[in-house]
């Protein structure tokens, strides 16, 4: 691709970005997790542009998964979740997971005692 796509999102589509995570190697497949701000119209145009440039675009929330058979609702994950996608519903003390709030930081994965959280994309595969 060799194009400054993130820069173009700002210059051509008036979007503001926040890079949450990035693994990029020259001439290899990479992964970038971006938070984008802007009007819906600009956002849609920006995403269309990325796709035209050959970038596979996915919503991160769909990439993080909680195995409900493994999670025993302790709450340890809520101590590290930066976006409150994992939170404690009180007073029931139910541990709620809202994928749409998740920024895919992956902090919950290693913190979960029974290892109930997982990501679809696997960063180690790219190394």
């Amino acid at each position: 691709m060799g194009q400054p796509v993130v820069c173009d999102l700002v210059r051509r589509f008036d979007l503001t970005f926040n890079i949450l995570s990035a693994i990029i190697y020259p001439h290899q497949e990479g992964r970038l997790i971006l938070e984008l701000y802007g009007s819906r119209k600009d956002f849609n145009r920006g995403v269309r542009y990325l796709k035209e440039m050959g970038v596979r675009v996915e919503k991160v929330g769909q990439e993080i998964h909680r195995n409900e058979n493994i999670c025993y609702q302790c709450g340890t994950c809520t101590s590290v979740c930066p976006t409150s996608a994992l939170w404690v519903k009180r007073p029931d003390m139910e541990i709620v997971f809202e994928p749409e709030k998740c920024s895919a930081c992956e902090l919950c994965i290693a913190v979960c005692p029974p290892r109930a959280m997982s990501v679809k994309f696997n960063s180690t595969k790219m190394l």
Binding site: Y72, Q73, C74, G75, T76, T78, S79, R90, M93, E94
Partner: peptide
Amino acid sequence: LFSGTIRVNGNDMPTVPLSSLKM
């Protein structure tokens, strides 16, 4: 502790359960 916040020495901090009340 179960309310979600405690205050100790003037510091407010969110509480986190490690024990599963549901179980």
